[in-house]
């Protein structure tokens, strides 16, 4: 398994699949039982490499783990010190992060007084304090309300624009589908890996939904004659299985026009990542 620089990589799996353990291994917090992994050329099990890896990465843990008694500013300031950042650098970076996350006005308030969403944002800021190029986010939107989840997701998308490599642990498939360039599905072992789009296609092939003013048998037959399988026929739509819609759609549309159809929409439909995930989980 290889995660590219600048990629947002989703790590999906049910509870207990080993997502958090994998992140902990990659962050050099627990040792591996077998296998190997390198981060930026450094080997995770090499003791001499471990501090270098920790310096390169930012980690958002499953539990935010803030110092509740300390202010938002102090929470970040101490982490800046842990990474040996100079005072001026710390000050500027804290201001930048807190302003970007909309927390600057609350910088002096104890973290314990923050809402869950604010705490999560502060924890993300903490993971970013030393400006790491690789970020591990373990369930960043777990237990957040929809609004807070959206704020956090939007922030991750901002980080994606900055070309940071993000390793995202989640069991929220919709989130993975929206954010990730590629995903790996895990169930104590790696089951599959690919872009959400490729995984959807691998399950169901490609399909287009053709909507017309009114479906009649001659229209369906005209498409079937081209060698395509037809499914889900309704009063004004039907679904056609295709291998390469980009090449096959023009011929289908010509056949439909010849059969007197008034085509309204042609839309590619596919399984959701959730369908793929559930199928893979069932198959084990």
């Amino acid at each position: 398994m290889h995660v590219e620089e600048g990629e947002v990589f989703g790590f999906l799996g049910p509870n207990g699949a080993g997502k958090t353990t994998t992140v902990r291994m990659l962050a050099c917090l627990v040792s591996r039982s077998s296998g190997t992994a390198t981060i930026g050329g450094y080997e995770i099990s090499n003791r001499a490499d471990q501090p270098k890896i920790r310096r390169m990465i930012g980690l958002l843990t499953e539990n935010v783990g803030l110092y509740e008694e300390l202010s938002a500013y102090d929470n970040l300031d101490f982490y800046g010190r842990y990474y040996k950042m100079g005072e001026q650098n710390r000050r500027e970076r804290i201001q930048y992060l807190l302003e970007m996350l909309g927390l600057w006005d609350r910088r002096g308030a104890p973290a314990g007084t923050f809402s869950k969403g604010m705490k999560q944002k502060l924890a993300i800021a903490r993971a970013l304090i030393h400006d790491p190029q690789l970020l591990f986010l373990d369930e960043p939107t777990a237990n957040l309300d929809p609004e807070a989840s959206k704020t956090v997701r939007d922030f991750i998308l901002e980080l994606k624009k900055e070309k940071r490599t993000i390793f995202l642990n989640t069991h929220l498939l919709d989130e993975a589908e929206r954010i990730c360039d590629r995903v790996a599905i895990l169930k104590t072992r790696l089951i599959t890996i690919g872009s959400p789009q490729d995984l959807r296609r691998s399950l169901s092939g490609r399909k287009v939904k053709i909507q017309v003013q009114r479906v009649d048998d001659s229209m369906v037959e005209s498409v079937r004659k081209l060698g395509h399988r037809i499914g889900d026929v309704t009063a004004n739509s039907f679904v056609v299985d295709l291998r390469e819609p980009e090449k096959e759609n023009p011929a289908i549309l010509r056949a439909l026009q010849s059969a007197g159809a008034d085509v309204v929409f042609v839309t590619e439909v596919g399984s959701s990542l959730e369908d793929v995930y559930l199928k893979l989980m069932r198959e084990g």
Binding site: R54, T61, G65, L66, Y79, Y82, K84
Partner: peptide, 14 residues
């Protein structure tokens, strides 16, 4: 209890 050890352990400190 605050689960604040893990993020600290993820820093380069020994």
């Amino acid at each position: 209890m605050q689960k604040s050890l893990e993020p600290m352990l993820a820093t380069p400190m020994s």
